[in-house]
């Protein structure tokens, strides 16, 4: 699971209010290189929940992102490289995603988060 996906996932247990972002408990993180696409990244800055991305990358051992994103105009290549790496190259292979309110853990195996809820949670 890459952080672009983490940025969309939340805990959908019935009645839970504080459901996003899920805290990442990594057991195994791998890095897979992908093509750098600056135009796409500039587009994404405004769409991403920045804090979720920064915290997610930190918990996966990559503390290089600034607390606030630069505006699209001032985003330089060195920033975009870090954004690229965080959003698209860090992969959570094994570990858990934890609901901030209930502590419910969603496990991640072979890179695939299991977001299925139990019957009494829906």
């Amino acid at each position: 699971m890459r952080l672009i996906v983490h940025n969309m996932l939340s805990c959908n247990i019935r009645g839970v209010v504080n459901k996003f972002p899920l805290r990442i408990e990594p057991e195994k993180v791998i890095v897979k290189e992908v093509d750098f696409n600056p135009d796409f990244l500039k587009h994404m800055i405004a769409k991403i929940d920045w804090k979720a991305l920064v915290d997610g990358a930190r918990s996966m051992g990559y503390p290089e992102l600034p607390d606030h994103p630069p505006t699209t105009l001032e985003s330089d290549e060195s920033f975009l490289r870090k954004f690229h790496h965080s959003l698209l190259e860090l992969n959570l292979e094994e570990g858990s995603l934890v609901c901030p309110e209930t502590g419910r853990k969603f496990s991640v195996n072979k890179g695939i988060p299991n977001m299925l809820l139990h019957e009494d949670e829906v």
């Binding site: 672009i4 940025n7 969309m8 996932l9 939340s10 959908n12 996003f20 994404m44 769409k47 991403i48």
Partner: peptide, 10 residues
């Protein structure tokens, strides 16, 4: 059918 995705990323 039970999924809720956050934001406007897709």
């Amino acid at each position: 059918t039970k999924l809720e995705l956050k934001g406007q990323i897709v």
